[in-house]
Write a protein that binds this DNA or RNA. Sequence first.
DNA 1: GTCGCCGGTTGATCCAGATCAAGTTCGGCG
DNA 2: CGCCGAACTTGATCTGGATCAACCGGCGAC
Lengths: 239, 239
Amino acid sequence: MIRTISAKPNRANSGRCAACAVRSLSICGALDQSDLAEFERISRHVRLGPREGLFAAGQAASSVHNLTEGVARLYKLLPDGRRQVIGFALPGDFLGLAPSDRYSFSADAIDSVSVCRLSREAFTHFIGQRPHFLIRINEFAARELMLAQEQMLLLGRRTAEEKVAAFLVVWRERLKQIDDDRQTIALPMSRQDIADYLGLTIETVSRTLTRFEREEMLVIVAGGVRLLDPARAEAMAAA
Amino acid sequence: MIRTISAKPNRANSGRCAACAVRSLSICGALDQSDLAEFERISRHVRLGPREGLFAAGQAASSVHNLTEGVARLYKLLPDGRRQVIGFALPGDFLGLAPSDRYSFSADAIDSVSVCRLSREAFTHFIGQRPHFLIRINEFAARELMLAQEQMLLLGRRTAEEKVAAFLVVWRERLKQIDDDRQTIALPMSRQDIADYLGLTIETVSRTLTRFEREEMLVIVAGGVRLLDPARAEAMAAA
DNA sequence: GTCGCCGGTTGATCCAGATCAAGTTCGGCG
DNA sequence: CGCCGAACTTGATCTGGATCAACCGGCGAC
């Protein structure tokens, strides 16, 4: 009886992965039909509301996650409460490259988020059987690492103005990649999140955006900004 | 004839990898006897003097490197010359996780450095045949990524004092891991390198170290520092 | 030797961005 | 509707670390 119940969600979700809108963007892009069926069997679809946590730093890293919908913030905290947002995860992003058995950062939903959750154990076994999948994971890791290095340059050596401009340019590029190519750049995260991502205060982010608006580089709208002068933003971001 | 000449260095170096002091620390720790022979065949041993470049950002990423001796600095430059050191590579470290076909950062020798250099092509082929090796590479990538995230926290949210203390503590730990466990922490890199790593100026690094010395937390010696009060340094580094 | 240079230290001053302190806007809710 | 609170903006002031400017000391060239 228990076996039947536990099998049920999988049957109900049959084809879930095959129908996944972000499959080709995600690590699952490297999986064929039969791989996909197995992946679906070992993964569980989870929905989270705004502000709900996916996992927290220090917890046993029992699961890996594949984001399919929404935006998540990834961050680290110092004992006194200072926070560094180390990234924003978008659909297609994989959260599970951990070198230890504990999460080294926390992740929570910004808006409504959907993820595929797999036990780390099952995931490790799964990848061990599939070298092409491992290569894919590797590519993702290398890309993450390059982004992290770019962010170090930003945090260590750029001015507030450059930081905000670079953030907008890179974020726009990422949204474009997941096919959200509107003139308005959606900013689902709060000013505080942006500040903690850029190593600034909320006031500096706010002032800088206001100034960009005054200088007619962009317009601040509900839930985002509209870039009027992308070239200028890109120039600021570049140096 | 050409074939004989090109085979010669390999024969001369036979057993080079088997005798490698840092093999167990490096990605090669995942290789068995026969893997190792093949790895040796496709790799070339290169020595570099102080300040010599391993590769530069923007160049075609034709090689991957495995550091076996010495210390290298990895860094990114902005068009106006501002520099961010994104890491220091020690024996056992692997430089080759690139998501694109161009190097995204530059690397050069700080002191005398030895590396194993492999063509990216041969390396890609090599790992494709060896899933256990891929898993090892993955572990290295995950560790790199975690270090990068820790560094983002440092760059974005820590004070100058915390940055310098954290740098010393982490660096000491790394030296310990490669069996350089002396009371004196060797600092082969310049003050400028440290400043560019921590997102500070050379003056601030110098002043902070001098103050630590005045406060009897450490003693500045030629080529490094001697930690008198590691507990205090660790407390500073923690928060 | 001693000259010059390079890496490092130290001091005085400056300023970008933090901090402190009000406003303002807006969406949710009785 | 009007009240509340959260998110954001704006203004005034402060300060940690940058910048500017000597200076020191060791060492390699000659």
